[in-house]
């Protein structure tokens, strides 16, 4: 699903965010991405969503090589990737329903289909009944769940999350991680960038650790407990 082949990312000005990163996330696999801030987590996610382009090496998503992807094909790629942001990135001038429906409307779904899928997605994240509410009136955890509903509503094969629990307390964070595991169980590939070691050490998934732009370790989250 995600394949990095000796990827370098150098920003204008010479800062090298990633160097020689290679890994392969198979379809249906779930992995965490960790590392100190500045280790290159965000850059790696940006390369996957084609927000940035690799300076060297190949990034292959769902069989598509992003190095050669034309700009006009980027939207179609992004429709295949559900992204959950730390800052939710909701549109605060429209209802929860309209926020979640956005990817479906972009993809051109029929009205009746949109309603059905939005309710299904909101049901999954436990927010059914809040469709007509404006996002600003919701708590941080609820807003994050709206963001997740939006990311999964058109059933993308790949789900990316950038510090999805960054602003949440431990109980809410566990709940959110539970949601991601549920989506993974039905076959969605999931990659989550996080620095919350306490939270992920209790789970058992693949763990990619970045350090100063290099892939330092490719192991399991359970190893975090033995490290302590």
């Amino acid at each position: 699903m995600i394949k990095f082949d000796n990827v370098n990312k150098r920003y204008p000005g010479g800062h090298e965010a990633l160097s020689g990163v290679s890994f392969h996330l198979k379809p249906g696999e779930m992995a965490f991405l960790t590392g100190h801030s500045g280790a290159g987590k965000s850059s790696l996610l940006k390369l996957i969503a084609c927000i940035e382009r690799a300076s060297r090496g190949n990034v292959i998503i769902d069989g598509q090589n992003l190095t050669r992807l034309k700009n006009r094909h980027i939207p179609a790629l992004r429709l295949k990737i559900g992204v959950v942001f730390q800052s939710h990135n909701l549109l605060y001038d429209r209802t929860v329903f309209d926020n979640v429906a956005l990817p479906l409307i972009i993809a051109g779904y029929h009205q009746s289909e949109v309603g059905r899928r939005v309710r299904a997605a909101l049901d999954k994240v436990g927010l059914l009944g809040k469709e007509r509410v404006m996002p600003i009136t919701l708590s941080g955890g609820e807003q994050q769940r709206v963001g997740i509903a939006r990311a999964v509503v058109n059933r993308p094969p790949l789900l990316l999350a950038d510090e999805p629990t960054g602003n949440l307390d431990p109980a809410l964070s566990r709940e959110i991680m539970g949601l991601f595991e549920q989506f993974n169980q039905v076959g969605v590939s999931v990659l989550i960038a996080t620095h919350d070691h306490d939270l992920i050490s209790r789970l058992d998934h693949r763990l990619l650790t970045l350090k100063q732009g290099k892939l330092e370790r490719d192991g399991r989250t359970t190893e975090l407990q033995t490290q302590k």
Binding site: A49, I51, R72, P75, A76, L77, R78, L79, K80, I81, V83, N89, L90, L91, D93, L102, P103, I106, A107, R150
Partner: peptide
């Protein structure tokens, strides 16, 4: 901000 978010979700320029 809204334009950035919709672009991230996969909106085309036409949209």
């Amino acid at each position: 901000q809204e334009i950035i978010v919709t672009k991230l979700i996969g909106a085309t320029n036409t949209f």
